[in-house]
Design a protein around this nucleic acid. Structure first.
Lengths: 214, 214
DNA sequence: CGGCGAGTTGATAGCTTTCAAATGCCGTGG
DNA sequence: CCACGGCATTTGAAAGCTATCAACTCGCCG
């Protein structure tokens, strides 16, 4: 990246903390809705969130899943272009734009921090596109599971067990297929002995085996 | 957007121009290759460029088409993560990262300019994802043509004629289907009287009709 | 005018969606 | 604590789309 990795100093960090509010949202609760005036930006403390866009034809495309540490809630022309919903119980830092804009005037490097976060999101959007356009759904799903395994809060490396925070429809809406296809393809991966469904949300992942196949 | 629209002042603009080189690339020429060390960032003066990513399995996914005014050539960890190729004869401004980094220290707002450009790219990546995941290819292609019609250099509003700078395979690689499907679906749109193929690259577009159908 | 590559068209195979039904899971209320 | 109800998930079968492979046409350039 052309921009040096930015680390805030103590003063900047304290100023940012001063305008942040820690909020708790239970699972499956809307944080903001597409079209709402964008008043806050959020950072995930713990939990997980989905960012989704409703289309006129009824389709619901999930743009991203956000994990601990991720920042979300950017606006376009004053409003949120998509909706954000918690997948599980989630703790968030909530930062009002009104105060953030003010803070940025005093500490310009804070703006760079948020812009860097946007670049990180861009990279993940490209990765998402690659996944969602694989001709075979089994490859999309396999790649998706591998992505999820990067999340330490949800993948236990010792046991290789992934605890999915999203349901089958969420996965389908992210990867661009029907909810039934999620089930069928998970079964196919299980038949290939690449995963084992322990419970609906708990899946044993043979990471290296999957990597070898795809 | 949380960040105010940035406009460079004359001094900043002059400094940027001072390190820019105007270069010409004929059609179908590689500007940089995926994996190359990223030495320059580019801004399109005239023409059009595709950004594509080669996958291990042989698939070639086009991430974006760039048009006059667009900036491209961001790097990840020193190297270009994808390749850029001209579609037609193209004039570019070439800016060396080495000098740009130096310039940014003197004019920090220039960094913000490039970061804003990155945000613009993010938005287009989301739009791309929406297009490429429509269940029906006809809707993908119709949406794609409408997007192309926003480019004043390639769409003549008076005659409603779009001059496509890319070939059928490029469209297929962008929207995630086979090259043959591009042809078949263009024919389908023509049968529906939504477009008329005047020549391979020249297409009469009934913009409003298409909008009504989709 | 000839030749090559891009584009188009046709037929079939393969994959995913859709619609329907069955099963399983979980929270609620008794 | 257990039974019930509702919803998510799974599974099945048929229909619909798109990819693939192959042949053919067209346009451009030498």
């Amino acid at each position: 990246m052309m921009f040096k990795k930015l680390v805030l100093d103590n003063e900047e960090r304290a100023a940012l903390n001063a305008i942040s509010t820690k909020v708790f949202k239970p699972a499956k609760k809307v944080i903001f809705t597409q079209g709402d005036i964008g008043r806050n930006i959020y950072r995930i403390c713990s939990g997980a969130v989905r960012l989704e866009h409703q289309l006129k034809d009824g389709r619901n495309q999930i743009f991203a899943f956000f994990w601990p540490g991720d920042i979300f809630g950017t606006v376009e022309g004053e409003v949120y272009p998509s909706s954000a919903t918690t997948l599980v119980n989630t703790h968030l830092f909530q930062i009002p734009y009104s105060q953030l804009r003010y803070l940025i005037q005093k500490y310009p490097r804070i703006q760079t921090l948020f812009l860097q976060e946007a670049l990180k999101y861009t990279k993940s959007a490209e990765q998402h596109l690659l996944l969602a356009t694989y001709p075979l759904v089994i490859k999309r799903l396999a790649g998706f599971l591998l992505e999820c395994c990067k999340q330490k809060d949800f993948f236990d490396i010792r046991s290789s067990i992934l605890t999915l925070p999203m349901d089958r429809k969420d996965i389908a809406d992210y990867l661009g297929f029907a909810p039934e296809t999620t089930s069928r393809t998970l079964k196919e991966l299980e038949d290939m002995d690449l995963i084992k469904r322990l419970a609906t949300q708990r899946i044993l992942i043979h990471v290296e085996k999957i990597r070898r196949v795809f």
